[in-house]
Design a protein around this nucleic acid. Structure first.
Length: 137
RNA sequence: UCAGACGGUCGGAUGGCCGCCUUCCGGGUGCCGCAAGGUCCGGGGGGAGGAAAGUCCGGGCUCCACGGAAACACGGUGCCGGGUAACGCCCGGCGGGGGCGACCCCAGGGAAAGUGCCACAGAAAGCAAACCGCCCGCCGAAGCUUCGGCGAAGGCGGGUAAGGGUGAAAGGGUGCGGUAAGAGCGCACCGCGUCCCCGGUGACGGGGGCGGCACGGCAAACCCCACCGGGAGCAAGACCAAAUAGGGACGGUGCGCCGGGGUUUCCCCGGCAGGCGGGUUUUCGCGCCGCCGUCCGGGUCGGUCGCGCGAGGUGUCCGGCAACGGGCGUCCCAGAUGACUGGCCCUCCCCCGCUUCGGCGGGGACAGAACCCGGCUUACAGGCCGUCUGACACA
RNA sequence: CGGAGCGUGGCGCAGUCUGGUAGCGCACUACACUGGGGGUGUAGGGGUCGUAGGUUCAAAUCCUAUCGCUCCGA
């Protein structure tokens, strides 16, 4: 099955992910990872995958920051449901290169970052990216 | 045709695939829920701006304060008339300045209410005064002499402000007359002050009389005058409401000693003993103290509302020079909350670079709603429309 | 959302309130002392006062707008 992706919302959640110091720097993005209580049956309500986005003012003005976050979100929606290991929290950080980098390169940046951080898994649905998961029409 | 002035307007176009937020309709009773509803499936509608920006003003709305109100302090505004819910905004005028012109710019009340400042230079910087000068009178070494005197330089006394010089600014300006030299001393014009008349709602303008000039500049120096302003802000504010700790009430149960009190099976107060806590330990002093259950109130995380029909958009007619106002018709048009409005692609349109003129490559101005509205200010690729001015050419 | 402060030589700061001369320390350059370095001394260079308008005879200073940075409260 494809797990639902929830959003990290609180500052404390972001800090907890950053506190693990596990990160991978790619040209188009930076990825931080933290394993949360996946094996713990008591926290079953927590979604298996949670993602947060960070785009600081260094990237540019409000329009540039919005655009960087939207491109990162689009890449995450394409890659994460099928390739990310369950039971992890992710923080995706935007850089200035996020704006200009071709979208395909951005996606491969995310894939290699997942592998490097040992948070990747085999694709469940080997179908085309534009037709992911059982949500077909 | 070229150069220019002003006003308005648009803010790449079209389509495909996959998503997101919101709203409406239908389905379904699989899951959650007593229910309303949520979730799920299908379909329809809507989904950033002219500045959404900066947060410089004005309001609505909400809470707080306050007997009505006024005054002081503080802050703001500052020619006149109008528009507006209101404004520091807008429109139309007035005055001043700039431009051949269309047109543009101006914090533009008061300096005879008072205080203060005007560096350097200069004699003198605000009250009149006089450095070099000019002129008159007296004295007068040299010199001249018809022997009476005359008299350069200089001295003393007085008149004057034309000229020189300093300065941003030197006590009306120019011209003529006048005078020993000069001076509004007199006259003409201009300026200034004041009074009257006329036009205008008014700022103000025009005309006439009088005054011979007194009244330098700075109020974006203090200040005076007139007018305006209660404070805070949607994280305002309202409602629902976990877990834990603490508060209160009730019930059950328990209650080491002494003293006091009361409404006397019990409750309250004080002391001792006991337990717990941290301060290294003892002494010591400090803080807290029965257990279980139910309920109540306040309230944090969280959630719901506020939160999208409005000083609304648009078309047309009428009034008004205009800002704007009124009538009628028509439309419903973003509501997120770690926050949607997106990702990829085809064709066309612009811009830039290269070019073998066939094309190839790159790019799409400034910029992202957060309670709402009216303004102001600032940023902005390129395009379109209208009115007007000057020059040249042609007819 | 509300409020406060700061932009001055390469660096860190005075001067701004009360308008007329932009000054201090370190750094820099040259020379001297030393065999050389360090150090000391002497002399010297260097500033659109964030930007743009305005007031004034005159603006770093006063007024308005704007840009950037820092901080505080909810």
């Amino acid at each position: 099955m494809v797990p639902d992706i929830a959003r990290l919302k609180r500052r404390s959640e972001f800090l907890r992910v950053a506190g693990t110091r596990r990160k991978w720097v790619a040209p188009g993005l930076i990825l931080q990872v933290r394993r949360h209580g996946a094996g713990n049956a008591a926290r079953r309500e927590e979604p298996a995958l949670r993602v947060g986005f960070t785009v600081s003012r260094k990237v540019g003005n409000a329009v540039a920051r919005n655009r960087a976050r939207r491109r990162l979100r689009a890449a995450v929606e394409q890659v994460m449901p099928v390739q990310a290991k369950e039971g992890h929290d992710f923080v995706v950080i935007g850089r200035q290169a996020t704006l200009k980098r071709p979208f395909a390169a951005l996606v491969s940046d995310l894939r290699t970052a997942l592998k490097r951080l040992d948070a990747s898994r085999d694709e469940i649905a080997p179908a085309a990216p534009d037709n992911p998961a059982p949500r077909a029409r």
